[in-house]
Each structure stands twice: as structure tokens, then as C-alpha cells.
Amino acid sequence: MKQTDLCEYSDNDLISAVREGKIEAFDQIVRRYESKVLGVLYGMMRNSDDARDVAQDVFVKAYKSVDKFRGDSKLYTWLYRITVNMAIDYMRKKQKKAKVEYNDEVKISDDNPAVPVDRINPSKTVQNKELRTKLQEAIEQLPEEQKSTFVLREMQDMSYQEIADVMNCSVGTVMSRLFYARKKVRDMIKPYLEGVS
């Protein structure tokens, strides 16, 4: 089976092929969703090495438990659920061992800033670097469930219902978690918000 053929497979077809023992089909699933999974993990964890490791674990776990995927939800919802659960587990274990390292951040160069300079305040580049740092710290300090909800909404632009499916909670809980997460982030970066709309 060629990878080019597999590219045209739907998610359900790929899952069926994986269940038949075709490991190449799962490789295609990984390639299809690795950016999304990595994005969520980088958003939640900041430490790029940790994010990579957990992303691998997510797909290995998905492969081993593919029989448990009933197809009631979409494949990416199921993958996000595994991702969020594993990220939360990992962060809790790491927090027990030591304080999270702040130096090993996601590598985003100043040439490609995560927060474009001209969109916020063109005359204050240094301040925008500070904003980026403060934003990362604020996200880092959110409780795990709020952080997961926040990342799924702001990074992946998922609907409340989709987030509720991933987080296994109600839409009302998603709305509440998002409000408190945004409010906490606001409290930490408020001095930098002037002029942003």
C-alpha cells in the first residue's frame, strides 16, 4: 500500500486499515494530525522536548488502543482527548518532581515572533518581547483544565461542543473555564493590552 494512496483515505478508512494490521495506515494518521497534536502540546507545555516526547506517546497510545475508538466521535476529537489527558498527567508528574523550567521555551525566533510587533505596538519591540514572555507565563500558570480549554479554543479554534467532547464536560463548563482562564491571563498581561482590540 502506497502512502500516496493512503493520503486519499478518510479517517474511518484509515482506522479500518489499522485494525486490519496495516501499520502504514497509522503512519498516515500520524502525518495527518501530528501538527495539531504538537501545536496543542507546545501551547500547553512550553518545553519543546517534553512536547515532542508526549506527542510520540500520544500516537503510540492511540495505536495500541485503536480498538477502543468506536467512531462515535471524530478521530481528531479522540486524538485531542488522549493528547490533553496525557499532557495533564505529564505536567502533574513533572510538577511533583520539580518546578517547571522557564528557560527551555518553545523556540520562536524574533524573526518570526509569535506576537507580531506591528499588530500590537510598533514602537515598543522590547515591550512585545515582554508581552510574549508574560503571556507564556500566564498560560503556564493556569490550572490544567483551564489551560487545555484555553489552548483548544484559542489555538485550534474548536467550538464549545467540540471542546466539551474532548474534555468530557458540559458546554457550560467550557464557557466557565474559558472565562476564568482569559480573566487570569488578562490580570497578568493587562499593562501590555493598551491599544490592542
Binding site: G39, A114, V115, I120, L135, Q136, E154, M155, I189, Y192
Partner: peptide, 9 residues
Amino acid sequence: VTREYFSGV
């Protein structure tokens, strides 16, 4: 601001 940041990520 967060969406811009995550866009970079």
C-alpha cells in the same frame, strides 16, 4: 493577543 501568539506556535 493569544491567537497571534498561538499562530506563531
